[in-house]
Simulated scan of single mutants.
Amino acid sequence: MEQPRKWSRTRAHSVHALTATGAVFAMFALLAAVEANWSWMFLWLLAALLVDGIDGPLARRYDVDLHAARFDGVLLDLIIDYLTYVFIPAYALYASGIVPGWPGWGMLIVIPFASALYFADVRMKTEDASFEGFPGCWNMFALVVFVLQPNPWIVLILSLVLSVAMFLPIRFVHPVRTARWRPLTLAVSLAWMVLAVMAAWGEFGLSGAWAWAFGLTSTYLLLAGPLQQLLDLRGR
């Protein structure tokens, strides 16, 4: 009996260890950003994003809350996510010169401030495991900006809109946990990840069909939740 219990504890603690590797990836991403190596910065952030996508299902499967209760997996995840989803991407948008001057300063104020409040929001998740409000995926937002390089004022306006959307009753799908359209959402998420790696590795030079695919997958992940809400309202 003791051996199965020991194995359960080992598996549970290994999930915490996997989650903690995100902090290492965050450090590597920060070092790359300081050296203005934006491609490698995003590759490290994408590695952290991949870990964030798989550690949750593993934690639930191996009953981490029961067998490794000493460490708060949710808190650990939030600490790392703030670094990789918010802090480093916001710094990159400004330090790269893509969003300079007053738009850059406005973005540097709005994104960290709103995200700090959102990450402490106890109503972040809905009953169907979606996100209540924009889930602060500034790492994905920043990569799209690096690829498209829109006008800095447009980036600031989008940052303001998405920051406000964090606290509105607008649903955004969780790529893994939201049950509705899950096969499609998982497929789109995997496609987005592949395209994101291609974009980062190729110095953000997606073109032709690849650029369209990147735009369409990004749009789906942004709008799938609001569309589900709209369908629910029309069905009432």
Rank of each mutant, 00 (worst) to 15 (best):
A179N: 08
V155Q: 01
L216G: 03
T185Q: 05
A165I: 07
Q149D: 12
F167L: 05
P175A: 08
F214S: 04
L195G: 05
R177Y: 14
G208E: 05
R177F: 14
S189Y: 12
A196L: 01
L168A: 15
P183E: 06
V161L: 12
R182M: 09
A165Q: 15
P175K: 00
V161T: 11
W212H: 14
A142E: 10
A191I: 13
S207A: 15
L156Y: 07
M198D: 06
T219H: 14
S207E: 13
L184N: 00
S207C: 05
V144G: 14
F204Y: 04
A165V: 07
V144C: 15
W192T: 04
T178Q: 04
G215T: 07
A179L: 11
V173G: 01
V147I: 03
F172D: 00
A165K: 12
S189T: 14
V155I: 02
M166N: 02
M166E: 09
S159W: 04
H174C: 02
V176G: 02
I170K: 02
P169Q: 07
W212Y: 14
F214R: 05
V173L: 04
M193Q: 07
L160S: 12
S163P: 03
L190V: 13
T185G: 01
R182T: 02
V161P: 10
V145G: 10
L190G: 11
R182Q: 12
R177Q: 13
T217A: 08
V173Q: 00
S189P: 01
V188R: 00
N151T: 09
A191N: 09
F214C: 06
G215K: 10
F167Y: 10
